[in-house]
C-alpha cells in the first residue's frame, strides 16, 4: 500500500487557517514536490513561490514544521515528522496569500542598510586587481554567497520582536561591502548600520547561522559591523 503524507498547508492571508491534504509519498521527494503536487492535483488555487528548484534562486523558502527552509532542498524523508508536514509562509513577513509573503519590507531594509555597491572607479579606469588573500577579502568572501532567500530573516527572534531591525541578511550584505576594497560608501554605510534598528540591535542568538541554507554566519558579520561602526558613531 502506498504511503500517504498528511500535509497541513496555510491557506489565506494573515487570518487564514491550515488545510490538510493527503499527498502520496515518493522516493527522494522534496517539500517543494509536495506543494507542487497539491497545486496540480488537489487545489489549483494554492499560491506559492518557486523558480529554479535547485537551491540557486532562494524563492521557495517557507516554514516547514516551524523551521524556515528552502523547500526545493528539503527532502520529506528528512524533515517530516512521522509522515506529517506543516507548511506555512515565511515568518516575520506579511502574508499575501497561502505560502507567499510580501518581501518588500525585507528589501527596503537592504536599502536602509546601504547594502549596495558604491563604485570607487568609473568605466574609464582600469579593472581593479583584488587580491583574494587580504583579510578584508577573506571576510567578504566568507559572507558573499547570500542569495536573499529570507530564511535568516524568518528565523531571527530580534526581527520578530523589533520590526525596525534591519535583520541578518541586509547586515550581512553590508558587511561584505564594508570589506570590499572597490567600494566607496565607507562611513556612510557604517553610519546606516549603526543607527537605531541596526547592527547593535542584534542579540547574537545565532538563529540566522543555524538555519542559513548556505551555511553562512550572519552573526559573525554583524559582530564585525559592531566593531567597525564604533569608529563612525
Amino acid at each position: 500500500m502506498k504511503k500517504i503524507l498528511q500535509v497541513s498547508i496555510w491557506r489565506g492571508g494573515a487570518d487564514g487557517v491550515y488545510q490538510v491534504f493527503e499527498v502520496p509519498a515518493q522516493a527522494s521527494q522534496t517539500v517543494l514536490d509536495v506543494v507542487t503536487w497539491v497545486q496540480r492535483h488537489a487545489d489549483a488555487t494554492l499560491a506559492y513561490r518557486f523558480s529554479c528548484r535547485v537551491g540557486m534562486c532562494g524563492s521557495c523558502a517557507m516554514m516547514v514544521n516551524g523551521i524556515p527552509r528552502w523547500t526545493c532542498r528539503s527532502h520529506v524523508a528528512k524533515v517530516s515528522k512521522g509522515g506529517t508536514l506543516k507548511l506555512a509562509p515565511l515568518a516575520n513577513l506579511p502574508v499575501i496569500k497561502d505560502l507567499t509573503v510580501d518581501m518588500s519590507r525585507f528589501f527596503e531594509k537592504w536599502k536602509r542598510a546601504e547594502a549596495r555597491f558604491y563604485p570607487s572607479a568609473s568605466r574609464k579606469d582600469d579593472v581593479m586587481s583584488v587580491s583574494p588573500g587580504t583579510s578584508g577579502r577573506i571576510d567578504a568572501d566568507a559572507a558573499i554567497e547570500c542569495i536573499n532567500c529570507g530564511v535568516c530573516y524568518a528565523a531571527c527572534d530580534t526581527v520578530k520582536w523589533d520590526s525596525d531591525y534591519l535583520g541578518p541578511a541586509a547586515l550581512n550584505r553590508a558587511w561584505t561591502l564594508v570589506n570590499d576594497e572597490r567600494d566607496a560608501a565607507g562611513a556612510k554605510r557604517l553610519q546606516a548600520v549603526a543607527n537605531r534598528g541596526g547592527c547593535y540591535t542584534c542579540h547574537s542568538h545565532q538563529s540566522c547561522q543555524i538555519h542559513c541554507p548556505k551555511a553562512l554566519n550572519p552573526t559573525r558579520s554583524i559582530a564585525g559591523l559592531k566593531r567597525a561602526a564604533l569608529a563612525v558613531r
Binding site: 549603526a194 537605531r196 540591535t201 558613531r233
Partner: peptide, 8 residues
Amino acid sequence: MNARLYIW
C-alpha cells in the same frame, strides 16, 4: 539600540 547605548 544605538552605538552609544551598546558601548555603555
